[in-house]
């Protein structure tokens, strides 16, 4: 499984006074099993880009290949494609509609025309992956669940499609810290057990630093920065210029460097920063 995007252009409201170039020549390649972070402030084109990956939006120009076949080609079969690409929008719990969590999670598989037995298996598996207890939650109304659980039920609804590529738009937005870390842990688990491509859209640079193999940073419909977290987060000034920040720990290390502290490496997480500062304090104490 791989994704290749070539010179994608998309224009909203063409011919109206509100015309905007939401994508302005985006190219990217994603390999099998990668966890990709997609960053950029609101309106930078992230959501528009991912909606092209499963054919919900069609580009004005440019091409998208999934696993070598062009999905932007005229007459390309999209039903098969949507099964393989799970797309989770922001606040996905607002799309829950069935009487029970079970039925809602089964919506996707039943649209695929799977047998009841297979659907059942998929629902159980998806709820397990999403961190919902089948026995206690399956027969409850999704609207009775807590905010964090609703979110998990909505994620299970997408996982039940057994996608080869999972795209999540701000999956932790609006949740409390406990639910946020549940969901991030879940992403780690899915990636380990499934080895699928995961694209995570997020404003939270700490999550990106912790999880992503590579990060793409978008601004005004273009990809402005890309690479492994260490590379992308070494460009603090550019990121700030785009209204983004660094992971908290990396930002703190930068502040220390600005005040003349000599710190080795490029710590991005709290764990790494702890080690680096520990070493810095020891060397400082060793000096006269």
């Amino acid at each position: 499984m791989s994704i290749r995007v070539e010179d994608l252009v998309y224009v909203y409201g063409e011919g109206t006074p509100y015309e905007t170039r939401a994508l302005d020549g985006v190219s990217m390649e994603i390999e099998d099993g990668e966890l990709i972070g997609l960053a950029g402030h609101t309106g930078s084109g992230k959501s528009t880009l991912v909606q092209h990956l499963n054919g919900i939006l069609r580009p004005k120009s440019g091409r998208v290949f999934v696993d070598g076949s062009e999905i932007t080609a005229r007459g390309a079969k999209l039903t098969g494609l949507r099964r393989r690409i799970g797309l989770l929008f922001q606040y996905p719990e607002y799309q829950l509609f069935e009487e029970t969590v079970y039925k809602d999670v089964a919506f996707g598989p039943s649209n695929l025309g799977l047998s009841e037995a297979e659907t059942d298996q998929r629902v159980r598996e998806a709820m397990f992956l999403a961190g919902l207890d089948f026995e206690s939650a399956a027969q409850r109304s999704p609207f009775e669940l807590s905010g964090g659980q609703k979110r998990k039920a909505a994620i299970a609804g997408v996982l039940a499609m057994r996608p080869d590529i999972l795209i999540l738009d701000e999956p932790t937005a609006g949740l409390d810290p406990k639910s946020q870390s549940d969901i991030l842990r879940m992403l780690g688990n899915i990636r380990k057990s499934r080895g699928i491509i995961i694209i995570l859209i997020s404003h939270n640079m700490d999550d990106m630093a912790r999880l992503a193999d590579r990060i793409f940073v978008m601004e005004k419909g273009r990809i402005e920065l890309s690479g492994p977290p260490e590379d992308v987060f070494s460009r603090g000034a550019e990121l700030r210029g785009m209204g983004l920040g660094l992971p908290e720990a990396a930002g703190m290390i930068d502040m220390m460097r600005d005040r003349g502290a000599e710190i080795e490496g490029r710590p991005l997480t709290l764990d790494a920063a702890e080690l680096a500062i520990d070493r810095y304090l020891r060397s400082k104490r060793a000096r006269p």
Binding site: F89, G108, N111
Partner: peptide, 8 residues
């Protein structure tokens, strides 16, 4: 869009 992403 969300429902069609689930095959609706």
């Amino acid at each position: 869009k969300a429902q069609s992403a689930r095959g609706a």
